[in-house]
């Protein structure tokens, strides 16, 4: 259907002209708000040989849910792992370009990763609690940051577990091993564990793909609640999920951002035919 090639929001990366538009846009929006948490400029990333991210330009908004969609291998995980520099754990990764987080370039080697990851929490595809008690899982982060006071830790445990809507289910078994929880509970525990460090941003890489529909729904509701206080970036393979819970959606393909717009627009009136093909299930 739409051959509208020139939607103002779409990010046409190859053309110099639209890059110029993009820059104008961001400089305009700078005035109205500091509502951008992450500003990615001309980001390229290589895994030794593979060119996994190509000229990414994306602005991620504060206290919104940003969904990242796209077929397998298009670079979604790579991108969000770049946002907390977890991607550096892979040997031989190289990046160019900048990612400003609160106006500082996190790709600059002088930016402490420990500091970044304290402000930016992450939830992984497979629930990965530590083989410890529920309590110990939650206080892991605070303890890392030097909090020793038992009273403070107890408080953190309760607020974090409440924040992840799992308090009522586990409050009587805080000293039991986290592996005794169901998959969905484990994932919410992992979210609570991330909250315990009091981050500003939460990155989620397909957080529900290993879960049953009911647990998935719970996590989705949780995300809706969390966005009041946190900026959330979520990778998902589930189109309905992206449509249900996100405010903006970025469509990745072969390491590029094909289209980035408000979720409603992406799903009802995409400007790139590849986006439309993907969300209507014609490939991927």
């Amino acid at each position: 259907m739409s051959t509208l090639a020139n939607s103002k929001m779409s990010v046409q990366l190859q053309s110099k002209e639209s890059t110029a538009n993009e820059q104008m846009e961001t400089s305009n929006s700078n005035v109205e708000t500091s509502g951008i948490v992450y500003d990615t400029k001309d980001l390229n990333l290589w895994y030794s040989e593979t060119h996994a991210l190509k000229d990414i330009n994306l602005s991620i908004h504060e206290k919104e849910v940003t969904a990242i969609i796209g077929p397998s291998g298009c670079g979604k995980s790579t991108y969000i792992k770049t946002l907390n520099r977890m991607v550096e754990l892979v040997p031989g990764v190289q990046t160019t370009g900048t990612i400003s987080y609160k106006n500082k370039n996190i790709l600059d080697k002088s930016f402490k990763v420990e500091d970044l990851r304290t402000q930016v929490g992450m939830v992984f595809q497979k629930p990965n609690p530590f083989p410890k008690s529920i309590y110990e899982n939650i206080v892991y982060g605070p303890k890392i940051h030097g909090i020793r006071n038992k009273k403070v830790l107890d408080e953190i445990v309760e607020t974090s577990l409440r924040g992840a809507y799992i308090w009522d289910e586990v409050k009587d078994r805080l000293n039991e091993n986290a592996y005794g929880l169901s998959g969905g509970q484990q994932q919410r525990l992992c979210i609570a564990r991330a909250l315990a460090v009091q981050p500003d941003v939460i990155l989620m890489d397909e957080p529900t793909s290993a879960l049953d529909p009911k647990s998935t729904l719970k996590i989705e509701e949780l995300v809706q609640e969390l966005k009041k206080d946190y900026s959330i970036i979520i990778v998902t393979h589930n189109m309905q999920q992206a449509a249900r819970i996100s405010d903006r959606t970025a469509f990745f393909l072969n390491g590029e951002v094909v289209e980035y717009d408000e979720t409603d627009t992406i799903f009802t009136n995409p400007s790139d035919s590849r986006t439309e093909d993907y969300i209507s299930g014609r490939f991927g």
């Binding site: 977890m86 992450m122 992984f124 497979k126 530590f130 982060g141 991330a194």
Partner: peptide, 21 residues
């Protein structure tokens, strides 16, 4: 498993903290 140390790094732990804990 790598996913355990990733969880630790993801919360801002240093390498040594991750190894030790």
């Amino acid at each position: 498993p790598a996913h355990l140390s990733e969880a630790s790094y993801g919360m801002g732990a240093t390498k040594w903290q991750t190894i030790r804990r």
